[in-house]
Design a protein around this nucleic acid. Structure first.
Length: 475
RNA sequence: GCUGGGGUGGCCGAACGGUUCAGGCGACAGCCUGCAGAGCUGUUACAUAUGGGUUCAAUUCCCAUCCCCAGCUCCA
């Protein structure tokens, strides 16, 4: 038992400081995470964000919170419209394909599903209502092109999240294209008036014929599912400005209340030391890696094992290492099943206390997963020493196993290692034959059988408790 | 150009200014094993980009230089 109540702290982008986390409602957490734009297969950088959010949610749950998680799917924007036109299929058919792929990929990475996955196209009325409110409150105006824009000059706290001063924004290409329709260059579209390029993608609403802007969707949908003020909002660092800044402006102008208490942003991924870019040849979707034969759980472990606020350098060498690290954890859990059972005289109990404390303190500290894993691996080694000495009892091993299971509820990499897998009949017979050969000290036959088994994908290991087998993935 | 985040061993990555700079992976050696696997132990001789400075003490603070990345362009 811990003496002090554990308290989680997060680095809040809003204040640029680590803050103790206190939810609005005791024991409950409302979180919103910016989901994918379903115009293509998601790449590993996208998944770093989604895995960070998954870890965050799982840690909150480990600490006893009930988490309500909402992740949006952006299914109408320039890219999706262009993509569907290129393939000459309806927008919905186009986006559904990639939405389905996204869910498949998420499942492969063992990402826990969110409670809601609202789609932008299913929430047009909510967005229209919100925009009307913003017009009424004096924060929005109709431009000469018929689009509705948000007047950022009216929102005095604009820039509080990104710490960007509007006056210092560099005049970019955007100014040129829009200077005759917006009152100010940085004003952003809430509602985009239909243009011929949009084809058959439009909604006839009180705001006119058109489609919603990007930022308004997150505001409308987060409010619908989580309320006007909620606890946590996450996303990649690139979303901090302008997307999240604009969300704040929209929400707080509409409700007069604080939108989000804790903003958490994850840093980007580098690949082989460079930013991931198609032209550099280092751009990978999850599917690319799975196609190369990599284990999605190794990818999960790798992307999870470093701190979310630091840029992470993805390399294939590190991916192999991640696979080996996961295997080490699995072997450990497997070993526990064979604990012979004499009792360690309290040593295991002491290790259990220590690892829970150490792991918890690290994860509580802004999800310092690297330190948490270091604590865990120290624990694994020390218990392995006791297992080698044959002093771990059955019940002690069970306690260790239960804890590993709890930790894996957070990490999601070990999975079930009980032999629910079935051994092919053929392999079963080979193992029996090999045991007979070993008894007879006919090593040549035993070794030949071991080779044949491995060809069947069955690894046999001789331990003090007898022969053990496990299935390995066949390439 | 402006603003911000970084550069730690063969690789990936931790580290309230202070005992020998975590942990994982890899390599090598030893123990164990019939052999292997798993596991354990040890090693991987000066790993903190470079040059200064502050300090009794710097990976940590300050300055300069080089390099990488990001935001200012609806890309996690």
């Amino acid at each position: 038992m811990t003496t002090a109540t554990p308290s989680i702290s997060f680095f809040n982008t809003l204040t640029r400081r680590k803050e103790k986390f206190t939810p609005i409602e005791k024991g409950k957490v409302q979180m919103y995470t910016c989901g994918p734009t379903v115009y293509d297969y998601a790449h590993i950088g996208n998944f770093r964000a989604f895995l960070f959010e998954d870890l965050l949610k799982r840690w909150l749950e480990y600490r006893g919170y009930t988490v309500t998680h909402v992740m949006n799917l952006t299914d109408v924007d320039d890219k999706t419209i262009r993509g569907s036109q290129k393939q000459q299929i309806p927008l919905q058919q186009y986006t559904e394909h990639y939405a389905k792929a996204f869910f498949e990929d998420s499942k492969a990475l063992n990402i826990k599903p969110a409670n809601h996955y609202p789609k932008a196209t299913s929430h047009i009325p909510e967005m229209v209502a919100l925009i009307k409110k913003l017009i009424k409150n004096g924060y929005a105006y109709k431009g000469q092109d018929g689009s509705i824009y948000y007047a950022i000059s009216k929102f005095k706290n604009y820039g509080k999240l990104s710490h960007i001063k509007v006056a210092e924004l560099k005049a970019g290409a955007r100014v040129k294209t829009d200077e005759y329709t917006k009152e100010e260059a940085q004003d952003f579209a809430l509602w985009k008036a239909w243009t011929p390029e949009d084809g058959d993608v439009f909604w006839e609403t009180e705001l006119g014929k058109g489609r919603p802007g990007w930022h308004i969707e997150c505001t409308a949908m987060s409010m619908k599912y989580l309320g006007e003020t909620f606890d946590i909002h996450c996303g990649g660092i690139d979303n901090m400005f302008p997307h999240h800044e604009n969300e704040i402006a929209q929400s707080e102008a509409a409700t007069g209340r604080k939108f989000v208490n804790y903003w958490l942003h994850n840093e980007h991924l580098l690949v082989e030391g460079r930013k991931m870019a198609k032209k550099l040849g280092n751009f990978y979707t999850l599917r690319d890696l799975l196609g190369k034969g990599y284990d999605p759980i190794a990818i999960r472990y790798l992307l999870l094992s470093s701190h979310y606020r630091a840029q992470f350098n993805f390399t294939f060498e590190a991916l192999d290492a991640a696979g080996a690290a996961v295997e080490r954890l699995r072997n450990f859990v497997r070993r526990l099943q064979d604990a012979p059972g004499k009792g360690s005289g309290g040593k295991v109990a002491e290790l259990l206390r220590g690892v829970q404390l150490g792991f918890g303190e690290a994860a509580d500290d802004d999800l310092n997963v690297s330190v948490a894993l270091a604590v865990l691996f120290d624990f694994v080694r020390e218990v392995n020493v006791l297992l080698d000495a044959g002093v771990v009892s059955r019940s002690e091993a069970d306690e260790v196993g239960a804890l590993m299971n709890r930790f894996d509820g957070v990490l999601g990499v070990v999975g079930k290692v009980e032999e629910t897998e079935t051994l092919p009949k053929e392999a079963e017979e080979l193992i029996e034959k090999r045991e007979a050969a070993r008894k007879a000290k006919d090593w040549a036959t035993a070794d030949a059988l071991r080779v044949r088994l491995s060809e069947l994908g069955v690894v046999v290991e001789d331990t003090a408790q007898g022969v053990r087998w496990r299935l390995v993935k066949q390439d």
